[in-house]
């Protein structure tokens, strides 16, 4: 079998090398597929369903970008990444976009040379404990065993939190969310800590979700957002404004149901017109056609729809909008204007 592999390596290397000089947008168009990095499986955010089709909140963003750029929301190759591999995968160009509930931090943005293009979920780190433990505050966890996913900011926050409160704990490092879930359910750790959204998602997969509570303390700010490589600003703009388009669409009341109707002719609201390309030439400015935002919204819905469908209160995950409500509803979502 020796030569075939060589051949494979050569063809792949050759093909990739041919296109490497061009910008990410051209790469994606040439390939006809968007390579999108997601988690290895976190229900509600990104997980393959029984048929192997990826679904979730982060997945929807990948699909929206694919719809805007390629006109097909299914033209996405999902690359599962772990805490360890995600940044290498992005830096090496294996993926064009990382949408893996990654926290926007100073050093990741600067030292690791990535560009966070926005925030699609305002999160914070919380603790999940069994009700039977009788704990009502994270500060009562003195001496507890805590399961923690390695290679994440949560690990550092955890150390800071316990040090600041001068209480001790025993960290049990685990590699993936699946393992953390097993260890926690087996009782090998008293508490499992990660982003509150991740905890809700994990708890939703339990047999008896009601036996477990998420403690009220949120010990950190975890703004999660998609990121791209540093230096390709055109591509960064496309991802940033696709995200903003979804947020703006919700603010303006554009949904997947009415987007086709609104886009068929210029309406009364000029911002909707600009967003959907019936007025102005915003699409052209980011090297796309005028229908780009319409396609993104039509394929996955606006931000609110994505949220409700994947992680909202009606889903097993059951997250409320909270900080992630529109600014008009008292939340933090505030998209810059389309103008």
């Amino acid at each position: 079998m020796k030569k075939t592999v060589f051949l494979g390596a050569l063809t792949v290397a050759g093909l990739a090398a041919g296109a490497s000089a061009a910008a990410t947008l051209d790469d994606v168009k040439a390939r006809g597929k968007l390579n999108c990095g997601v988690t290895t499986g976190l229900v509600g955010f990104a997980a393959p369903d029984a048929n192997g089709v990826w679904e979730g909140f982060d997945v929807a963003l990948c699909r929206a970008v694919a719809a805007a750029v390629l006109g097909d929301a299914n033209a996405v190759e999902f690359v599962p990444t772990t805490g360890k591999t995600r940044f290498t995968a992005l830096a090496s160009g294996e993926i064009d976009l990382l949408a893996r509930n990654t926290t926007w931090t100073f050093s990741r943005d600067t030292d690791l040379k990535f560009d966070f293009v926005g925030i699609n979920y305002y999160d914070g780190q919380g603790f999940l404990v069994p009700k039977a433990l009788g704990v009502s505050s994270a500060k009562e966890l003195d001496g507890a065993t805590v399961c923690i996913q390695t290679g994440t900011t949560t690990e550092l926050n955890l150390a800071d939190f316990f040090r600041a409160n001068n209480i001790s704990y025993e960290p049990v490092p685990i590699e993936t969310n699946a393992e953390g879930q097993q260890q926690y359910l087996a009782g090998a750790c008293d508490s499992y800590t990660t982003d509150a959204s991740g905890l809700a998602s994990t708890r939703a997969a339990f047999e008896n979700p009601g036996d477990h509570v998420i403690l009220p303390e949120i010990i950190s700010k975890e703004p999660l957002g998609p990121l791209v490589r540093h230096g390709d600003n055109d591509w960064g703009d496309i991802v940033r404004w696709t995200l903003n388009a979804l947020i703006t669409a919700e603010e303006l009341g554009v949904t997947s149901a009415n987007v086709n109707e609104l886009a068929s002719a210029p309406g009364s609201n000029p911002e909707i017109n600009r967003l959907l390309g019936t007025e102005g030439n915003l699409g052209e400015m980011i090297s796309l056609d005028s229908d780009w935002a319409k396609r993104a919204i039509a394929s996955v819905g606006n931000y609110g729809e994505v949220f409700e469908k994947n992680i909202g209160e009606k889903t097993p995950i059951g997250l409320s909008r909270g900080l992630n409500a529109q600014w008009t509803d008292g939340g933090l979502l505030y998209s810059p204007p389309f103008r």
């Binding site: 592999v5 494979g8 390596a9 792949v12 290397a13 990739a16 090398a17 296109a19 490497s20 000089a21 790469d27 360890k84 591999t85 290498t88 830096a91 090496s92 160009g93 294996e94």
Partner: peptide, 23 residues
């Protein structure tokens, strides 16, 4: 294979993880 090999290949070259692992 997983995190370092990419640095030693021409910029922009990516090939399958499985192929890197085979190598």
């Amino acid at each position: 294979a997983n995190v370092v090999l990419a640095y030693f290949l021409p910029p922009g070259t990516t090939f399958d993880l499985i192929l890197r692992v085979i190598i």
